[in-house]
Design a protein around this nucleic acid. Structure first.
Lengths: 132, 132
DNA sequence: GTGATTGCAAATCTTTTGCACTAAA
DNA sequence: TTTAGTGCAAAAGATTTGCAATCAC
C-alpha cells in the first residue's frame, strides 16, 4: 500500500493514525504478506529510522490485531507471530529454518469437523503443518 | 498406570528412572489423558508432597517429550501445554474458559494437503479449533 | 567411584504495566 | 482543550542456566 494511504487505511479500521502507527503500518502493509514478531517489527522500524518504542510496537500490533488487520499465529513457544494475511489460511512451519509459509485455505480440506460444545461458536481453525 | 510400573516404563523410554521423574510420571501417566503446563505439574507434585524443583519439572517434561511420552501443544502464547496423548489427534480450545479438549484424529479429515517443500517431511499436523 | 541428575538462585527473554509527557482531534 | 497515545524504565511471567551437592548404576 502506498504510504500516503496508510492514515486513511488505519482510520477506516477505527484506529487513530498517529505517526508511530503509520510507520509500523508502512512496514507491515507494503503489499507483501508477512509474518513478523514484535521484535522484528521494532528492528525494522529502527532500520528505517522511525523512532518507535518497543512498548508502542506491542500496543500497535495488538490494536491492529483487534481491528482485524493482523492475525496472531502461534507456532513457537518463544514468541508470537503477527500475520498480515487475515484471510482464512494455514501454515507450513519449517522447524529446521524457522520459516513460516502460507497455505491457501483451499489447499486444505477439513471434513467431518466435530460440532463445538453447546453454546460455543468456532472462532477460527488453525492448521499447522510442521516440517522437519 | 500403576506407580510400580513407572520405573520400567521410563527405562523402556530410555530415561533413567530417578525419584523425581517417577513422581512426575505418576502425576502425568495415571491413565487419564491430560494437558498440563509445567507450573501445573509442579503444583500437583507439591500437593502430593513430592519434592521436585521447578527446574527439574521443566527438564523432565522436555525429556519425556523428546522420548515421545509427551507432546507439546501451543495454544496460548503465555505457556506450553504438555499433552499425555501422543497419538495423532487435534484440539478444541475454548477461549472463554481456557479449556483444551481432544478431538480424535478420525473426527477431522484433511484432504488435499499440499506437498511439503523438497527435501522436507511432515513431522506433524496440528489442527486447533478455537471456540468463543 | 563416576557420570547423570537435581536444586537453587540468578539470568534471560518476551511481554505488560505505571506514569509522566506529548500529540491528535 | 481533552482524551488518546507514547516512551521509558521497571515489573511480570515463563523458561533456562551455572554450578555445587546428590543420586543411580
Amino acid at each position: 500500500m502506498h504510504p500516503a494511504q496508510l492514515p486513511a487505511f488505519l482510520q477506516a479500521a477505527g484506529i487513530r493514525p498517529t505517526r508511530q502507527r503509520a510507520a509500523l503500518a508502512a512496514i507491515l502493509f507494503d503489499g507483501a504478506p508477512k509474518h513478523m514478531t514484535a521484535e522484528q517489527v521494532h528492528a525494522a522500524a529502527r532500520t528505517r529510522r522511525s523512532k518507535v518504542s518497543l512498548a508502542t510496537v506491542y500496543n500497535a500490533l495488538h490494536q491492529f490485531t483487534e481491528a482485524g488487520l493482523l492475525r496472531e499465529v502461534l507456532i513457537d513457544s518463544a514468541r508470537v507471530y503477527f500475520d498480515t494475511n487475515t484471510d482464512a489460511h494455514h501454515h507450513f512451519f519449517d522447524e529446521a529454518s524457522g520459516d513460516l509459509h502460507d497455505i491457501p485455505a483451499a489447499a486444505v480440506k477439513l471434513a467431518r469437523l466435530p460440532k463445538p460444545l453447546k453454546g460455543r461458536k468456532v472462532a477460527r481453525v488453525d492448521v499447522i503443518i510442521r516440517l522437519c
